[in-house]
């Protein structure tokens, strides 16, 4: 009996040793030289492999970083400026800071605002529905509500709001990788600068129909009335195809446009609530209300998410500070 055991142990060990030796020599023989810096850069990257940089994965991005002379043309949206400066120090190159961005949804057509005129009964996929027809409302530009963007998000930064049937972007989780922008067949999502204190103003509508048609289809559509265009002193609003577009590079967040919009199609995010005015008081825009919810929701989500990275924590702290400032 003990002989058998001994024999087994010896044989197995012998096989192991011989295999190890063979493997060692083979590994030596077929070794491919790789710049060790690629490994270092790879380490510094977030390993999300989301493709937001335009490369298939983080490793390819790292290779490109090592090869290139000009780091400015490369950017990892997930890691952001911190990550890029780390990469730059590893490689001894310089990189310019880029403004952090976040995805925003340019449709506010919840069932409350947009009447459903038919029922979609096909496969649950936005692109299929988009290829088939305009949508279940009279607005053929609006959100189809089947969540292809949510499915495409690698960072759990989006979810479908059951009440509004619209996707919601959790700003703290969004890495601006651009996957949702690719996914949306209606081109409703846009990457915009995060803005000072995360404050943003944008037109939440893509409807290019004439004013009357758009308004009939959806209460909160941009009707192309140009009031905001006239109100803007900074030339940051552009009127095109019956709708307004705010250039985030030029916008100074003065909120003049928000006040004049007759359909509340212009959204302001993360601004303090306006002081109540004695005169005609407009009810708080749905966007603001939603946003408070959104922040609460986002916090809940970050708590729920077990993977708490440092970046996220910092972000939530910042957010809290903001809120404190706002309440003060």
């Amino acid at each position: 009996m003990s002989d058998t055991v001994l024999f087994t142990i010896i044989t197995l060990s012998a096989i192991g040793i011989i295999a190890a030796v063979i493997l060692y020599f083979l590994a030596q023989k077929f070794k491919v030289y790789e710049d060790p810096k690629i490994d270092e850069v790879d380490e510094a990257l977030p390993s999300a492999n989301c493709g937001g940089c335009g490369f298939p994965g983080c490793r390819n991005f790292a290779e490109a970083c090592v090869k290139t002379d000009d780091l400015d043309s490369l950017f990892c949206p997930v890691g952001g400026n911190d990550c890029m400066s780390e990469v730059a120090t590893i490689l001894g190159k310089v990189v310019a800071e880029k403004t952090p961005q976040v995805a925003v949804l340019r449709c506010n057509g919840s069932p409350k605002h947009r009447e459903r005129v038919n029922t979609y009964d096909g496969a649950e996929n936005c692109t299929i529905a988009h290829n088939l027809y305009g949508g279940y409302t009279d607005c053929s530009y609006g959100c189809l509500g089947m969540g292809e963007c949510v499915d495409s998000c690698n960072f759990e930064a989006m979810y479908m709001d059951k009440e509004t049937d619209l996707p919601v972007i959790i700003q703290e989780m969004c890495t601006a990788c651009g996957a949702c922008i690719e996914a949306c067949p209606k081109d409703l999502l846009e990457l915009r600068n995060k803005g000072k204190k995360d404050r943003r103003i944008f037109v939440s509508c893509m409807n290019e129909d004439k004013g009357g048609v758009a308004k009939k289809a959806c209460d909160v559509a941009c009707i192309g009335c140009s009031k905001c265009f006239k109100a803007c002193k900074f030339d940051s609003i552009e009127m095109k195809n019956n709708r307004a577009y705010i250039d985030f590079e030029k916008c100074v967040l003065c909120r003049a446009c928000v006040k004049v919009c007759p359909t509340e199609a212009i959204h302001e995010i993360n601004f303090p609530l306006r002081k109540p005015k004695p005169a005609v008081e407009k009810p708080a825009s749905t966007a603001e209300v939603k946003d408070v919810n959104l922040v609460a929701e986002a916090k809940k989500n970050t708590e729920n998410a077990k993977v708490e990275t440092k970046v996220e924590k910092e972000d939530t702290n910042k957010q809290d500070e903001n809120k404190n400032n706002e309440t003060k």
């Binding site: 038919n118 305009g134 053929s140 129909d209």
Partner: peptide, 10 residues
């Protein structure tokens, strides 16, 4: 005019 055709697009 632009009218809705069978596909729901104008």
């Amino acid at each position: 005019d632009e009218t809705v055709d069978g596909s729901g697009y104008r």
